[in-house]
Nucleic acid binder design. Structure first.
Length: 210
DNA sequence: CCACGGATTGGCT
DNA sequence: GCCAATCCGTGGA
């Protein structure tokens, strides 16, 4: 089993900052999930920022509800929601409780626990090339691969079950931005950030204006 | 490769 | 009722 230096865990202060600043620095960091005594991990390669009060596409835009209350728990919390009747999506909460800001994790390049992820996604251990590409290149796929569901909603990212390890920051010219995917409000805001030329980015083609 | 439509259910109007 | 921060299979170029 791969071992981790958990002293390298990102501290609370990392998360208690502006959502866009955290989003860009989250690229390249290592997402870790402990499941059945095994560490599943991967490099974050794509995310989208949802900026609370000023962002009509944010779940928190109209204030606190049962569904989005974790977005108001302050930086360093995992927000998991259920969507389209079938899928879960995981977010990193940032800033302070009143901000209601979060970052959707959209793309991860797998590092450890790939067989367990393959089992979760395709119910087998050996994957074809096309299956490997589709292992964790999307927010719903990531939750399926990392065994994340509603029971993980509200987990502290300073816990020992789900956390993020520090790693190098990427240079500006390696970070691409675009409109966010799959939303109908605030469609023009360029708040999707992803690593250039990484095959685990969910949509290599940029979303068109509708 | 790309576009399109169906699946499926909890939350909110 | 309506709709959603998605995914997958299908059919065509």
């Amino acid at each position: 089993m791969k071992r981790f230096n958990t002293s390298n865990k990102l501290p609370l202060k990392f998360y208690q900052r502006n959502v866009h600043k955290v989003a860009k620095e989250l690229l390249g960091k290592i997402f870790v999930r402990k499941f059945n005594c095994e560490y599943l991990s991967g490099r974050i390669v794509e995310i989208e920022a949802y900026d609370g009060k000023i962002d009509m596409a944010a779940h928190s835009y109209n204030g606190k509800t049962k569904r989005n209350e974790v977005m108001f728990k302050g930086g360093g919390t995992l927000y998991v929601y259920f969507t389209y009747g079938m899928y879960f999506c995981a977010n990193v909460v940032t800033g302070y409780p009143e901000d209601g800001c979060a970052i959707l994790i959209r793309g991860i390049e797998p590092i450890a626990g790939i067989e367990s992820m393959s089992k979760a996604r395709f119910n087998k251990l050996e994957l074809s090339d096309s299956e490997q590409k589709k292992l964790t290149n999307g927010p719903g796929k990531i939750c399926q691969a990392f065994y994340i569901d509603k029971s993980d909603n509200g987990t502290s990212l300073l816990s020992d079950t789900i956390f993020i390890l520090d790693s190098k920051n990427y240079d500006k010219n390696e970070i691409m931005t675009s409109r966010r995917i799959g939303i109908k409000k605030s469609v023009d805001l360029p708040w999707r950030y992803f690593l250039k030329n990484n095959q685990y980015v969910s949509n290599l083609k940029l979303p068109n204006k509708k």
